[in-house]
Design a protein around this nucleic acid. Structure first.
Length: 304
DNA sequence: ATGCCGCGGCCTCCGCGA
């Protein structure tokens, strides 16, 4: 590469039906111009996804890897960088009862990228909750192995709010899934395996949501949850220039109930340690965040 | 106004999401 390497923009978005979101997704690609996109809840089989999107994506330079079987779930990775070594499914998937299309991996720009749709869990006494925890245990094994091989990012709808700050009112979640100690412990095990929640690392104290229920004016009232996460190994987390939630994608008609999370990475060091501009007061843990050139892109509620 | 739930399919109801 003779030219200066460009930065990389990686995003994740639960689109709640690729078919219903076709126009919004293409519009969003043209606006946000992500290099790598992890999608969840496409709710399509592989051939149906390609039939809908192949031409539009090809024209925009995206390669596509999709893993779905129709009505529920369905995940994909789009990349206008490289898209190599595609792996469909989660090794060790406990199934419900059989394996579901909730995970797909590919190597894009030197990073092992996983697009994940963690089971919802429904209620804590539902078999689906035990399935969720078993699925997360399988994911932990996959992550523990992957992080020994190099740079890793796991992005997607984790269906876990990491802390009480990540829901609009924790008292509304008494006895509910998404906030239980067991789910948060499963997430902590991914952190122990070497992954960093890059949005929280960059914005330690901001209220940031990625999901708002369609009902009861939740979005206008900003009654949301942060359940869509981008987790990365320290080498990748150290390249984070900016990370934010694209709330504009949640506005208007015909939207998903989730908004995209977007992560901008500085160019891989490649021997160069990169722009080591120290923060004025370094309160953050070393290597977990880079100074944000574009911090004005902003996070959290904007109230007028 | 960001405005009172929306997907797919089993299709005028149901399962699911969280």
């Amino acid at each position: 590469m003779g030219l200066p390497s460009t930065d990389v923009r990686i995003a994740t978005w639960n689109i709640n039906s690729a078919k219903a979101r076709q126009a919004r997704l293409i519009e969003w690609l043209d606006r946000a111009e992500p290099d790598v996109v992890c999608l969840q809840e496409t709710k399509l089989a592989d051939d149906a996804f390609l039939e809908l999107f192949d031409e539009d994506l090809f024209r925009r330079g995206y390669r596509v890897a999709h893993h779905g079987d129709g009505r529920w779930n369905g995940v994909a990775i789009l990349s206008r960088d490289t898209l190599d070594d595609v792996a469909r499914g989660l090794p060790g998937d406990p199934g419900f009862p059989g394996p579901e299309p909730r995970a797909i991996a590919a190597t894009c720009g030197g990073i092992r990228i996983w697009s994940l749709y963690v089971p919802n869990g429904r209620t804590i006494d539902d078999p689906h909750y035990a399935y969720k925890l078993a699925w997360l245990a399988a994911l932990r094994e996959v992550v523990a192995e992957a992080t020994t091989q190099g740079a890793v990012m796991t992005l997607g709808d984790f269906n876990i709010a990491p802390t009480d700050v990540d829901v609009w009112d924790i008292t509304q979640f008494e006895g509910a899934t998404h906030v239980t100690p067991a789910e948060r412990a499963a997430l902590a095990e991914l952190v122990d395996a070497g992954l960093i929640d890059v949005l929280r690392a960059r914005w330690p104290d901001d209220v940031v949501y990625t999901y708002w229920d369609y009902r009861q004016l939740c979005f206008p009232k900003n009654l949301g949850m942060r359940i869509d996460l981008a987790l990365a190994t320290a080498d990748v987390a150290g390249r984070v220039r900016a990370v934010w939630v694209d709330r504009a994608a949640r506005k208007g008609v015909g939207t998903s109930d989730h908004a995209p999370v977007i992560v901008d990475l500085d160019t891989a060091p490649d021997g160069d340690i990169g722009p080591m501009v120290p923060p004025p007061s370094s309160g953050s843990s070393a290597g977990q965040s880079a100074p944000g050139r574009t911090s004005s892109t902003g996070t959290g509620p904007r109230r007028r």
